[in-house]
Amino acid sequence: MSDLLNVENLCVRFEVKRGGMFGKKSYLHAVDDISFAVKKGETLAIVGESGSGKTTAALAVARLVNAWRGKVELDGRDILPLDGAELRRARRRVQFIFQDPYSSLNPRQRAEAIVKEPLDSLSDKPEAEKAEIVARLFKAVGLRPEQQRLFPHQFSGGQRQRIGIARALATQPELIICDEPVSALDVAVQAQILNLLRRLQKEFGLTYLFISHDLGVVQHMSDSIAVMYMGKVVEHADRISLFSNPLHPYTAALLSAVPSVDKARREATKRILIPGDPPDPMNPPKGCRFATRCPLAEARCRETPPALREVASGHRVACHLVPDPA
């Protein structure tokens, strides 16, 4: 199937001022030249630790922060330069599910108004039809009709996230960006929400861009995975080859940290510890960004940044130490 979303060389930088009003401007490159594509109806997971730029990348794709350069193509059309009515048309097709169900719902709006908001701003349907859509959405995400009149503080975390999902579905989008949609929830509720997301994906043919730091969740949800470290994609492959054959040392370390109940697997994978913290993002290392913490780093790793290259069919990695395919 064809690519619904194609991101090319996306860069996002933030201006950081040091020393008051007349201080020197410098830039923090939160997302530094990343590219990926998602096929229609599939799920691409972006994983990485806090500060790796995964959420910023997601916000830039949804036009919620401004990209500095690059392309975000939806069905082959770049949505970054759009504004006005065209941007609203694009927003209808790309919706967002937020991480924290406690802060992502306006405490002064009733549940029905929250779900209806995208319809109010992005569609010109008559009120009666909007109410009908809201009622259908409540049913689809497993909320009762009488709960429409309640305020957010009267719901539990899982129910709140269901409201957030219903809101994202309101304009019948094709692409939904899920920014760690379950990391703020109890484990039991997490499973319910993940299963709901998968069921909705099948029902509506949705494409997901799924941001997470939880590899267990990612294994359950995704078709392919991109691993980010300090604003760069270090490895990008389909789920099976990434989990069975991680090539980048960072990915290998991440995977070894996933707890397992399978004794054989636990013994087979030795725990790889990464020493230290990520370096200062204002002043990234000039070679490979992982070189300062990489157990295998060589001299060339500290000198030249590795490019992301395809080493097996559909498996791309940015590491000098991985040999080219024969």
Binding site: R91, R92, F98, D100, S103, S104, R167
Partner: peptide, 17 residues
């Protein structure tokens, strides 16, 4: 900076709104 404001923006709300 709260997420529900970003959520409203994603829902297409204008600055005035």
């Amino acid at each position: 900076e709260l997420e529900y404001v970003t959520a409203s923006r994603a829902s297409g709300a204008s600055n005035l709104k």
